[in-house]
Design a protein around this nucleic acid. Structure first.
Length: 475
RNA sequence: GCUUCCUUAGCUCAGUCGGUUAGAGCAACUGACUGUUAAUCAGUAGGUCCCUGGUUCGAGCCCAGGAGGGAGCGCCA
């Protein structure tokens, strides 16, 4: 007989059948004649209530049933007398699989701060909030593969260790097997990477995009979904040193196609979560509302979490050029801390104003000045701007960055040279423009930023099981 | 990297103008209770006030340095 899990038992609600439930104790309420145990096995946010009538279980066993303990309960599923659940387990026997000493078990049936739970990352999945987050995280991962598979994309595995240092997306983590105390030196006194494992300098990838483009120029539609590493000393609630990124790349797509894809993709993912994570989102919606109540009126969000998610699925994103955005900001009544000027990158406060105050919906900004964007973006006809796009979300900021890629061999070579990238280091990338080049476009979606938006959480460290941030790599 | 705030019981926090024995809620423990919903009620126990140094008759509170954490900014996804 296959094992029973709480989600299925609650869904089937097969009254008067024998059940075996296993899970971790959330709460125990004891009175003279009856004891109630709420058990959760993580398959759903809902607990199952086990009812122990006096004298069925010995005092000795009952005393060991504390919050956090793991139990195997044998009994009968019956209709519940209580109002908060349809069914409950009438207990016949309990086997304690693992005790949890109440004096030292840190997770209590009460509110904990997220800062505290971050230090207990090994146990925090046992809480309602983190259980919900990690189930939603899974659902979104699955939806990503689903979407691309249904749309004829191929999942391309790009390398984690890269010998290319030209991705230009940020500081990199060095990968080496050299003895750091006594590395081999060249005649000039530099470290001799020819002696290293790969015979050259290698790093952890900051983006799979360049390799993704190689795939797109052969398979037409590809995507990557893998871990990405940035050694930037970023101390914010929106950055991780190790995060997961989704990067579709499509041959024959231009910037408009790219925007259409990004918008359809994001709306699909949010809709998928709304359809498949109802219980977890209802819980997080209530949590979000509670959190909002603590904030001063002015900072409160007009919509609840579910409201925000539905809004994104039901409204098209606002599309405008960087130049148009600059003029809106220049004419805004609001005083900004930083001045707005054509040619400089927009500050967070500017992006927030556009998304949260002016348009009040997701915004796609396009055609940025070439000097503030990467070398591989396709130059516009005016020679001043590039076919770039950033998708900005309320409360998150930039969730997607992408572009139509430069497909002209000479122009790409010139741009690389201008920003100081050596031709030898990207010869393979340049060759795709030399042999059978074609228009193509793609983007990068920060997975944790998506999870942040869907769950309504405030800190990116709380939507990945084991966050990696500057000065923190525990667990 | 920059700015700013915080660190008091296991957790979440209060602590007045620098004053004698540092408090509350929750958790834990003991007991009561005929079905509870983070049960309720009564009681018990629980403190390196982040660390180091200084000012003072006297420091949780003031000053200096350090450590850890949060928020904001920059870099970006």
């Amino acid at each position: 007989m296959s094992k029973q899990y709480i989600k299925q038992i609650l869904a089937d609600a097969a009254i008067d059948t024998a059940v075996v439930v296993r899970g971790w104790v959330r709460t125990k309420r004891q009175s003279k004649n009856v004891t109630f145990i709420n058990l959760n096995d993580g398959t759903t946010i809902n607990n199952i209530q086990a009812v122990v009538e006096a004298d069925t279980i010995t005092e000795e066993v009952l005393a060991k049933i504390n919050t956090g303990a793991c139990l195997e309960i044998y009994g009968k599923l019956i209709a519940s007398q209580g109002g908060n659940q349809k069914v409950e387990v009438q207990v016949e026997n309990i086997k304690i699989l693992g005790e949890a000493d109440p004096d030292t078990y840190p997770i209590q049936p009460k509110k904990h701060s997220f800062e505290f739970l971050r230090e207990k990352a090994h146990l925090r999945p046992r809480t309602n909030t983190f259980g919900a987050i990690f189930r939603i995280r899974h659902a979104l991962s699955f939806a990503i593969h689903n979407y691309f598979n249904d749309h004829g994309f191929f999942y391309l595995h790009t390398p984690i260790i890269t010998g290319s240092d030209a991705e230009g997306a940020g500081e990199m983590f060095r990968v080496t097997t050299l003895d750091l105390k006594n590395p081999p030196k060249t005649e000039e006194g530099n470290i001799d990477y020819r002696e290293d494992f790969f015979g050259k300098e290698t790093n952890l990838t900051v983006s799979g995009q360049l390799e993704g483009e190689l795939g797109a120029l052969a398979l037409s539609k590809v995507y990557t979904f893998g871990p990405t590493f940035r050694a930037e000393n970023s101390n914010t609630s929106r950055h991780l040193a190790e995060f997961w990124m989704i990067e579709p790349e499509v041959a024959f797509n231009d910037l408009t196609d790219n925007m259409d894809l990004a918008e359809d993709f994001l709306q699909y993912l949010v809709r998928y979560a709304l359809q498949h994570c109802e219980d977890d989102l209802a819980f997080l919606d209530a949590r979000f509302a509670e959190e909002e109540k603590q904030k001063p009126q002015q900072e409160r969000s007009e919509l609840g979490l579910l409201g925000k998610l539905k809004f994104v699925t039901e409204n098209s994103f606002e599309r405008l050029t960087y130049t148009e955005a600059v003029s809106i900001l220049k004419n805004a009544k609001k005083k900004f801390q930083f001045p707005v000027d054509w040619g400089t990158d927009l500050q967070s406060e500017h992006e927030r104003y556009l998304v949260e105050k002016h348009f009040k919906k997701p915004v796609i900004l396009t055609h940025y000045p070439k000097d503030i964007k990467a070398f591989y973006m396709k130059m516009d006809e005016d020679g001043k701007t590039v076919k770039a796009m950033d998708v900005l979300f309320p409360g998150i900021g930039e969730i997607i960055g992408g572009s139509q890629r430069e497909d002209d061999y000479q122009k790409l070579k010139d741009r690389a040279a201008q920003v100081g990238i050596e031709e030898e280091s990207i010869w393979w990338y340049l060759e795709t423009r030399k042999f059978g080049s074609c228009p193509h476009a793609g983007f990068g979606l920060g997975f944790e930023r998506l999870v942040l938006f869907v769950t309504g959480m405030g800190n990116i460290r709380d939507v990945i099981p084991f966050p990696r941030t500057p000065k923190n790599a525990d667990f």
